[in-house]
Simulated assay, not measured.
Amino acid sequence: MAKNLFIRGFRIDHAAPAYSESYLSKIPVLRHLDTFEFRKKVTFFVGENGTGKSTILEALAVSSGYNPEGGSKNFNFATSDTHSNLYRAMRVVKGIDRPRDVFFLRAESFYNLASNIDEIGDPLFLEQYGGRSLHEQSHGESFLSLMLHRFRGNGLYILDEPEAALSPSKLMTMLARMHELVNQHSQFIIATHSPMLMAYPNADIYVLAEGALKKTLYEDTEHYIVTRHFLEDPKKMLHYLLD
């Protein structure tokens, strides 16, 4: 395990009732996943919907003390108790160092996070997010405000589909900001469908498919292959799809 990472890995106890007596035991990838080791400062989990990407990230975040709907350890709002119990069966292996900054971003509950920030109503607190209500910004602008203003470096950032609201140019801005934060001793764990994000250099990409979690080269991911084929000849691809 890499010693300079804030989270070095995790273990899943399949005998724990939280796992064995729930729907989690029916998710193929989880059924075959006992121990996982992080080795890079940026790790991507990719795969089809329903393969368990978000479930793993959510459990990592909750096990680390983050609010299940997003935010840092200081957030305790809850609009819907829908997170799984995987965190009860997961043991997170932490590194020697502790992060000075932490954040869990969930695209699906980001609206609730933005609302909670407004409800707190503290101008000094709002300054951490760019000094302007996230609801007064576009969805993409508010996502980037987190990256540019709230993320301070020396941090652990768990991001679930952060590309959801970002245009291609804003994704490139995100990549540049990620690189700044990585150089400031930060660790990113990201679930994504974006081939642009996955292109981040020297990252580990793990594909959840066929009941396994497989480390995969960027150029071998379905996301890269399908996107490349489409962009090389969109007319041919559309003809194949629509006729």
Rank of each mutant, 00 (worst) to 15 (best):
T221H: 08
E127V: 05
G211D: 08
A203Q: 04
N202S: 10
H149G: 07
L156A: 00
Y218M: 09
H135Q: 06
Y224V: 02
S142T: 08
S145I: 07
K236A: 13
E161N: 13
H179R: 13
V182L: 09
F151S: 00
L146N: 00
L242P: 09
A191C: 11
V207T: 14
M147K: 01
S167R: 06
A199H: 10
D243I: 06
S186F: 03
F230H: 04
L197K: 00
H229K: 11
E210T: 14
G140H: 08
V226A: 08
L171Y: 05
H135K: 15
L166V: 05
R228I: 10
I205A: 03
M174T: 13
D233N: 15
D160H: 06
K235E: 15
H149M: 11
A191T: 06
F230Q: 03
H229Q: 14
L241G: 12
S167T: 15
I190M: 05
G131W: 05
A164K: 06
M178C: 02
I189P: 07
S194K: 00
N154R: 09
K235R: 13
L231C: 12
G153E: 04
N183H: 09
M198R: 03
A164T: 15
T216S: 05
E163M: 04
R150P: 02
L241M: 15
F151R: 00
F188D: 01
I225C: 13
V226I: 14
L146C: 00
Y157W: 11
L156S: 01
K236T: 13
A203I: 08
D220W: 00
L134Q: 01
P168L: 01
L197T: 11
L208P: 12
G211E: 12
D220M: 07
P201T: 07
I158T: 02
Y129D: 00
A212V: 03
P234D: 01
Y206Q: 04
K170N: 12
E161M: 12
I190W: 04
D160W: 08
A209H: 09
I225T: 13
L242R: 11
H185R: 13
T173W: 01
L144W: 03
P168N: 06
V182G: 00
Y200A: 11
H179M: 12
G131E: 05
S145Y: 04
S133Q: 09
N183E: 15
G130F: 01
R228F: 14
Y206N: 08
A212Y: 04
K235H: 13
Y157P: 03
S142Y: 00
L148Y: 07
L181I: 10
A203Y: 11
L213Y: 02
S138G: 13
L146A: 00
L134P: 02
I189L: 15
Y157V: 04
T192I: 10
Q187G: 12
F151N: 02
I158N: 01
L231N: 11
L159A: 09
H185M: 07
P195S: 03
H139E: 12
S142E: 01
S138Q: 08
